[in-house]
């Protein structure tokens, strides 16, 4: 079943067409990798889908509901969560609090509940913490023992993990990961591939990730979408896309593309 459907999406910044008529979709429980050279418009695509930017034209639907014109918090509430290319945690909140913020759109206590603390608000607060701990627990003993540490004190890889945990805490159906392996070493990258598999198997998430690392893309994806200059230039299985001459040209330049494989 189609979860996310993007049709002919256009987003200009001044004279630059960052996203220039992209058609894109993600089916339920699918893992899709978006590849493409730097500046191809991958992150912009994420930003438009999640409501950070409004599209100039085109259609975006999530479970048949249009996303166009929705603010990021509404998009999150519908069930799309994301991580960022440059890690953007709340550095001066604890690990647990970071994950608890993710629960915001699934809970409702307002100032009244906060000040008076009726029983339902107390219960809700406890559930927020429990669910936050549960998503931290998904990462084994990486995050849970550190729950009272400030986020800025975490190691780099743990920050990446916490960003994913925070996104999981919003209880999404679709998870958008923007270069989750950036800056990781081979061992950590391997761990991440495994993690993405578990996100689908244990949590039933659909995952769309932007990724530069080809072995990771190869190991993790059901389908690969290549973007260049704001347009989709190829899509299909990893082998199909990686042998596509247009993709090779986009990555390596014209001369190389005529002769060699990646």
């Amino acid at each position: 079943m189609r979860l996310l459907e993007v049709e002919n999406l256009v987003k200009h910044f001044g004279g630059v067409a960052a996203v220039d008529g992209v058609d894109f979709h993600a089916d339920e429980k699918e893992i899709v990798s978006v590849i493409g050279p730097n500046g191809a418009g991958k992150t912009t695509l994420f930003n438009v889908v999640t409501g950070f930017f409004e599209p100039d034209s085109g259609k975006m639907e999530f479970e048949k509901l249009s996303l166009v014109g929705l603010k990021p918090n509404r998009v999150t509430k519908l069930g799309i969560a994301r991580t960022f290319q440059q890690i953007r945690l709340f550095p001066n909140l604890t690990v647990l609090e970071n994950a608890m913020v993710g629960q915001h759109c699934r809970t409702k206590a307002g100032p009244f509940g906060a000040i008076i603390r009726p029983p339902w608000a107390v219960r809700e607060e406890r559930e927020i913490a429990d669910r936050a701990r549960e998503v931290l627990g998904f990462f084994g003993d990486r995050l849970l023992p550190m729950q009272d540490t400030m986020a800025f004190e975490l190691s780099y890889a743990d920050r990446r993990r916490l960003e994913i945990a925070r996104a999981m805490a919003t209880m999404p159906k679709l998870l958008l990961l923007d270069e989750p392996t950036a800056g990781m070493n081979p061992v950590e990258k391997h761990g991440l591939v495994e993690l993405i598999g578990r996100l689908r198997a244990e949590r039933g998430y659909t995952v769309v990730l932007i990724e530069h690392d080809m072995p990771v893309v190869k190991n993790v994806s059901d389908r690969v979408v290549a973007i260049d200059h704001g347009k989709v230039i190829a899509q299909g299985t990893y082998d199909e896309v990686s042998s596509d001459p247009q993709v090779i040209e986009a990555y390596l330049g014209k001369q190389k593309a005529t002769g060699q494989q990646i």
């Binding site: 990021p72 999150t76 913020v101 915001h104 906060a114 000040i115």
Partner: peptide, 27 residues
């Protein structure tokens, strides 16, 4: 009471990074 609540957390998130707070569902 406000500080140590869902509301206070939303404020703290906003103070730390407004756009990300919004992406986490904070209006």
């Amino acid at each position: 009471r406000l500080k140590d609540s869902r509301v206070g957390r939303a404020w703290a998130a906003m103070r730390e990074d407004e756009s990300v707070a919004e992406a986490m569902g904070v209006s």
